[in-house]
Computed example of a mutant assay.
Amino acid sequence: MGRLIVPAITLSFLAYFAFHAQSGKYGIGSKEILASDLAGAQTRYEQLLNRREKLERRVQLLHDGTLERDMIDESARRLLGYSATDEVTIMR
Rank of each mutant, 00 (worst) to 15 (best):
S30G: 00
T43A: 13
G2K: 10
K31Q: 02
E46K: 12
V6R: 07
P7C: 01
L4R: 10
R77P: 06
G24F: 06
L67A: 08
Y26P: 00
K25E: 12
T66Y: 11
L67R: 15
R52Q: 15
E53F: 00
V88R: 04
Q22W: 10
L62W: 00
R77F: 08
S12N: 06
L67H: 09
E74A: 07
K54N: 12
K31F: 02
T43N: 10
L61D: 11
E68C: 02
L55K: 04
L62C: 12
L38G: 06
E56H: 06
G2Q: 12
E56D: 13
E32S: 10
G24P: 03
S30K: 06
R44N: 07
I5Q: 00
M91V: 11
L55H: 00
H20N: 02
S12I: 12
R69D: 15
M1P: 06
Q22Y: 10
D37Y: 08
Q47H: 05
I72Q: 08
R52F: 09
M71I: 00
F13A: 13
E53A: 08
N50H: 03
Y82F: 12
I72S: 00
T66Q: 15
T43Y: 02
S12C: 07
I9V: 15
L4M: 13
E53R: 11
R52K: 13
T85C: 02
V59K: 12
R58V: 01
L55C: 03
G24L: 08
D37C: 04
R78V: 00
G24N: 05
I28S: 01
R69M: 14
T66G: 10
V6E: 14
E32D: 15
E74I: 05
G27P: 08
V6H: 00
E74S: 09
T85E: 14
R57W: 06
M71H: 12
T66L: 14
E68Y: 03
S30Q: 03
L14H: 03
G2W: 04
N50Y: 05
M71A: 11
G27C: 07
I28E: 14
L48D: 06
E46T: 03
A84P: 08
R58C: 02
Y82D: 10
L55Q: 07
D70H: 01
R92M: 03
S75V: 15
E56G: 04
D64Q: 13
Q60E: 14
Q47K: 11
L14P: 00
A35E: 14
L49Q: 10
I90H: 04
Y16F: 14
K31G: 00
A84D: 15
L34Y: 07
F19W: 14
E87G: 01
V88P: 04
L62G: 09
I90Q: 01
Q60K: 14
I9Q: 05
Y45A: 10
A84M: 08
E53D: 04
I72D: 06
F19I: 11
H20F: 09
R44V: 01
A84W: 03
G29E: 14
D86C: 03
